[in-house]
């Protein structure tokens, strides 16, 4: 059932992606930084707004299972990472999560979903990790799933699960900006030497 106030809120939620665009600057905003390495680090700093957003961090945990919500509280029901970053035998990620977001039938909100919905491996755990360390990890093929920088660009710019961050389903705030801007930032960061913030 919709109450009048709820409709108003729904209107605001519908408008929020536009507002969020403003939350992430494109590469042009950093053109005035003359030192290339500094500019590169600044670009990564901007990418960090996405990388450290709860939509991403909730499944990039350092230990244990995923977290939930903007306050990144423990997942309810309690779930564990499991050997394959896919939950426990008998209760995998896809016991509940499907290949798309699914709206709840009984209340507002949705259960998130996407193809290959699972946790990032522990080597890509970012919760509580500094942006500089995330940057070092993300460039390290031993810890980034054996990706080259070009692979990384592809991943950031076009991977569907990454893109889910901007289409997280009813009841969740999307990551700032858009995957397109995030891709452009990654491109510019690589092209400027993929420097890490200090």
């Amino acid at each position: 059932m919709k109450h009048l106030t709820v409709m108003l809120v729904a209107g605001l939620i519908a408008a929020s992606p536009v507002l969020a665009q403003d939350g992430l600057n494109g590469p042009d905003a950093f053109a005035n930084i003359t030192d290339q390495t500094e500019r590169s680090a600044a670009l990564f700093q901007e990418m960090g707004k996405v990388l450290t957003h709860p939509r991403c961090l909730n499944c990039h945990t350092v230990t244990g299972g995923p977290t939930q919500g903007d306050d990144m509280h423990a997942h309810e029901p309690p779930v564990v990472r499991g050997d394959a970053d896919f939950g426990a035998p008998g209760m995998n990620c896809n016991t509940c999560h499907g290949t798309t977001n699914v709206g709840f039938s009984t209340e507002k909100g949705s259960i998130p979903g996407h193809d290959s919905w699972m946790l990032a491996p522990v080597s890509m755990g970012w919760q509580g990790v500094s942006l500089g360390e995330i940057c070092a990890q993300i460039k390290d093929p031993a810890r980034n799933g054996d990706r080259t920088l070009e692979d990384l660009y592809e991943h950031h710019a076009h991977d569907g699960l990454v893109g889910w961050g901007w289409d997280p389903g009813e009841g969740r705030k999307p990551a700032p900006g858009s995957q397109e801007i995030f891709g452009q930032l990654t491109r510019a960061w690589i092209d400027t030497g993929a420097a890490c913030p200090g």
Binding site: E76, P77, G90, M91, N92, N94, T95, C96, G98, T99, T100, V102, F104, S105, T106, E107, G109, I111
Partner: peptide, 28 residues
């Protein structure tokens, strides 16, 4: 029991693995 995949009362096997049927649209 809940409609939001919290309680597990709706669990079925989908292609042999457990699945909460309350958050599984028939199209899936």
């Amino acid at each position: 029991g809940c409609g939001v995949a919290q309680c597990g009362a709706c669990t079925v096997m989908l292609d042999g693995v457990p699945r909460r049927s309350c958050v599984t649209p028939i199209s899936a």
